[in-house]
Design a protein around this nucleic acid. Sequence first.
DNA 1: GATTTAACTTGTATTTTGCAAGTCACTATT
DNA 2: AATAGTGACTTGCAAAATACAAGTTAAATC
Lengths: 128, 128
Amino acid sequence: MTIKTETRRLKANSFKRSICPIACTLDLMGDKWTLLIIRDLFKGKHRYNQFHESGEGITTNILAERLQRLEKAGLVFKTPYQTRPVRYEYHLTDTGKTLDTVIWAIIEWANRQIPGTNKPKRSKMVKS
Amino acid sequence: MTIKTETRRLKANSFKRSICPIACTLDLMGDKWTLLIIRDLFKGKHRYNQFHESGEGITTNILAERLQRLEKAGLVFKTPYQTRPVRYEYHLTDTGKTLDTVIWAIIEWANRQIPGTNKPKRSKMVKS
DNA sequence: GATTTAACTTGTATTTTGCAAGTCACTATT
DNA sequence: AATAGTGACTTGCAAAATACAAGTTAAATC
């Protein structure tokens, strides 16, 4: 199945504390869960249940809310993978995919500084 | 005034949701404020009031709690800059300084993807 | 008809954060 | 000597976010 890409830009209408690039990024994903969903998307997970079963135990209401926020922010889009009943899967937009640099910087930092963290292979980071 | 360096490693005794490097990093700084304090430290700010007056409006109780957490985590240490009354200033440990790669990845991402974010010069990112 | 599945949604308890004010140990001013 | 000011917190309470458990919906399968 081919998935259409999305090239929408980041929405500029959300609240910002300042024009600091760090602060603005934290306004988008400064919490304990958002970046884990983005990580899962890079791992090739696309469906609600896959995110939900990802080890860390995100609760269903938080997951639903974060997916909506990411969609509104333009980092993620959803597309139906079946009808009757309609069910959607989630994908990174082109903008969302540019987060690979941030994700990878964090992985490399943690692998060096936090003992015991697993070391994923870059080849397993899917861009779809 | 010369500041002694700190080479302590990251504490391994804190709670972790998983061994995922992203999840572990979020356990340390997955909130709206911690990374802004680290940003300020890289900007050469070291005292409580400087953090407090940093535009985004962190409240005093959150600031105090985050500084304690960062100290316990081994990313920041405090050292007295005066006696009577004793007052401390905060600095990045050697481990804390390694976060420059993460900070910089975020800055570059935001500068590309979030319109209107300011573009700091790398030369202004002090490592002290 | 009853059960199962995927993707949510809702209600309520618990935790975290925000906001305002207060404290403490001094120094400086009148 | 009393008063005000400073820097670094601390405290109390309200508000918001998160966690936990259960319920809903539209189908497919037994």
